[in-house]
Amino acid sequence: MNAWIAVLAASAIAYGFKLAGYTVPPVWLEQPRAVRITEMLPAALLASLVVLQTFSTGPHLVLDARAAGLVVAIGALLLRAPFIVVVALAAVTAAVLRMLGWS
């Protein structure tokens, strides 16, 4: 039951922050510093999620097939492959390495 209380509390806090965002004066959002931060924030959040999901299992850092899949995905992106091809190559790489016993 405690987990549900935490989920509901976090949801209420997130909703409160969203509502509070509507009260921010537009002048504050038009400042160059705020514009730079809001432009870079999605990329930084996505990068942190990718790193966290690739190199961690629970509280431990690991180097497994997911890392190899990420390396293949980066290579495919550098070669300007379509996004679906990048995802498929990364997934196949990780799957084959796991099948070969590298978990």
Rank of each mutant, 00 (worst) to 15 (best):
I13E: 00
V71I: 14
A95T: 09
Y15Q: 04
T57Q: 13
A34W: 08
G75N: 03
A81T: 01
S103G: 15
L79Q: 01
I5P: 00
P32W: 03
A73G: 08
P42M: 09
A81I: 02
V85I: 11
P26D: 02
R80K: 05
A94N: 02
V87Y: 10
S56H: 14
L19A: 12
P82Y: 02
L19S: 09
M40A: 14
P42F: 09
I84K: 15
L61N: 15
L49E: 13
T38M: 15
V62M: 11
M99W: 01
L63M: 07
V62H: 12
V7T: 07
T23E: 13
V35E: 02
M1K: 11
G21W: 12
V85H: 01
A47Q: 01
A34D: 09
M40P: 11
A47E: 03
V85N: 02
P32S: 03
D64I: 08
A88E: 02
A44S: 01
S103I: 15
G58E: 02
W102K: 08
P25W: 12
A67P: 08
L61G: 08
F83G: 06
W4K: 06
A81Y: 00
F83I: 05
I13Y: 00
A47F: 14
Y22D: 15
E30F: 06
A44V: 12
S11C: 11
A65Y: 01
I13T: 00
S11F: 06
V87N: 06
V92D: 10
H60T: 05
P59R: 08
F55C: 13
L77R: 00
V7W: 13
A73H: 02
A12N: 01
H60Q: 13
L52N: 07
V85P: 03
P59S: 08
A34N: 12
T93P: 08
A6E: 06
S48D: 14
A65W: 00
V96S: 10
M99Y: 10
M40D: 10
A12D: 00
T38G: 09
L46R: 03
L97Y: 05
P25L: 10
L29P: 13
V71D: 07
A91S: 06
L70N: 07
A6T: 04
R80I: 02
V50A: 03
D64T: 11
W28C: 12
